Amino acid sequence: MKTVKGFASATVGNVACGFDVLGFAITEPGDEVILTLSDRAHTDSPVSISAITGDGGALPLDPKKNTSSFVVLKFLEYIRAHKQIDFTGHISLELRKHLPLSSGMGSSAASAAAALIAANELMGLPCSKMELVHFAIEGERVACGSAHADNAAPAILGNFVLIRSYTPLDLITIPSPEHLYCSLVHPHTELRTAYARSVLPQEISLKTATQQWGNVGALVTGLLTSDYDLIGRSLVDVIAEPKRAPLIPGFFEVKQAALDSGALGCSIAGSGPSIFAFSSSEKTALAVGNAMKEAFLHSKAHLQSDMWVSPICKEGARIL
């Protein structure tokens, strides 16, 4: 028997203006997946789930319905067909959730990425990280019905990732400026991704699209040139944030508190309810995060929240 533990951290999708095409990873928190390989084959499935902790019993134990095990099944199918690896054993999976569910922090992507990095290690590294992203994206389809990559790709690859195209999949990694820090605040409430997507417009005006394109291009330029002022000016979402902000109690007060404390910019993390802000130093990011927590607490909903301050994760999913 052989055991491997994989880890993948929280991610922020959309990054304000980059709806479904831009995401980044932070260093913590994250999910752990422990895979144990045995020679004895099971007749029902090559992968089973032995335990899940930290989810409050919410996640399914069926390996075809759980994101972390589903991506391992797809990975095994792929290496049999394309890497000439004849897998006849069995993998037992233990998922340790440290990310809250329905949080906008890439919880399902982290579980998938951690499982895939561990499975790849178990099988002798037959796939590159870029290949693993394909399976992680399919895990997102299981989790929320939409196979988007803005969490899955940075969870595996690290840094910022721009999705130029989904068909075919074309990913571009963007290095992070040295002093860019993220304050990520998760209020103790849930906002399901499917519902958050349902409130979005199916069509937008040319004027709105042009505004969004300009901000995406400027944000990427700011990241590549370490232009912190440009990064801040570009964190403007004219499509998703106006529709989703009312779904997050205290959003406007929290965003204003972040900006008043020195944040470069602030927006919804993924589909919410978490909110992220960028700062150009760790000291400022700590002050920003604390201000955001206070604003949630003093909002009409009086929400408690958790806060993390982190640089951008450059490594992505890794073996512990």
Rank of each mutant, 00 (worst) to 15 (best):
N151F: 07
R197K: 06
E94H: 14
H298R: 13
S234V: 13
T173I: 11
V238L: 04
T88R: 13
L162H: 06
T27K: 02
I319C: 08
I248L: 05
Y166R: 00
L180T: 14
L180V: 14
L122R: 08
C144W: 03
A113K: 10
I163V: 13
D150S: 06
E203W: 09
D20Q: 05
E241R: 07
A291I: 12
I172L: 04
G232R: 01
L116I: 05
P201N: 01
T173H: 06
R164L: 02
V161R: 00
I34Q: 04
V220Q: 04
G217F: 08
W308R: 05
S310Q: 05
V254G: 11
L132Y: 07
V47W: 04
K5F: 10
E28F: 12
F7E: 00
S38C: 08
H134V: 01
A245W: 15
T189C: 12
K83V: 13
I275H: 08
S271A: 15
V15Q: 00
T221Y: 11
S226P: 14
N151G: 01
A118K: 04
S267G: 00
L184Q: 10
Q84L: 15
E140G: 00
A153D: 00
D55W: 03
K207Q: 11
Y166V: 03
S280K: 10
I79G: 06
D62V: 06
K255H: 13
L76K: 01
A81R: 09
G30Y: 01
S305H: 09
L259R: 11
V12G: 03
A153K: 03
C266G: 06
A317L: 00
I117H: 03
H148S: 12
L157R: 03
K5Q: 12
N14A: 10
T189G: 07
S102D: 03
A112F: 03
G262F: 07
L35T: 13
D229K: 12
E77W: 05
S9Y: 06
S108I: 02
F135V: 02
V309P: 08
Q202P: 08
I172K: 02
A112E: 03
M130I: 10
A110S: 15
R318H: 01
E77H: 09
G54C: 08
K97P: 09
P168A: 05
I26T: 03
V12R: 00
A301L: 04
S111Y: 10
D44W: 07
A147G: 08
E138D: 03
G106K: 02
P100G: 11
Q256G: 12
G6F: 02
A196D: 12
P100H: 11
F252W: 10
M130G: 11
N151A: 01
P175V: 13
S310R: 02
K83C: 15
P311R: 01
V238T: 00
A16S: 10
